[in-house]
Amino acid sequence: MSKNLNIKKHIFSILKGLIIVLMCIFLYFTFSKPQASSKDFTTVQNGMLNNIDLSTMELKDNISIKRFLNLEPEMFENIIYYKSQDALNADEIVLVQFKSIDDAKIFEEKMEARIDEQRNIFSGYAPEQEDKLKNSIIDVQMNYACMVVSQDVKTIHDQFLRSL
C-alpha cells in the first residue's frame, strides 16, 4: 500500500528524470557530428591506398574526371581519380577534399549517378563487375569523401576512414 503511494508521489520526478535522460541522449546524438579532418590530402591518399595494388589502374586527368564522373575538378580542393586500364573492368577509386562542406551533396549525387550508369552498362553480361558496383561505397566524411568500386572495397574504405 505504502509502496504504491510512494511511486504515485514520485511519479512526476521519475517521469521527469526519464525525460532528462532521453534529452541527454538526444542532444548527444545531435551534437556528435563527424568533425572535419585536419589531415592533408596526400596523407589521406597514401593512407587510403596503402598496400593496394594499383598496377592495373591508371591515374586519370582532369578531362577524364569531367568526362566520366561529370565533375568539375576546380570545384574541389583536391581530387584524384583512378580507373581500371581495362575497358571491361569497372574498378574505380575517387578521393576528394572539399573546399566547402556544401559541395558534398553534389559529389554524392554525381557519384551515385556514375554507379547507376556503370551498372546499366555492365548489367546482364558481366556479373562480376555488376557485383563490384553493387558493393561499391560512396562515403562523405565532412571535408573528405571517397567513391570505391573494387574487389578490395572494404579494405580501401577502412583505410580511408582511419587515415582521416
Binding site: F12, S13, L15, K16, I19, F26
Partner: peptide, 12 residues
Amino acid sequence: LSILWNYLSGIQ
C-alpha cells in the same frame, strides 16, 4: 520532450 517536461512540471 519539452512539451512532456513542462506538462508534468506544471502539474507537479
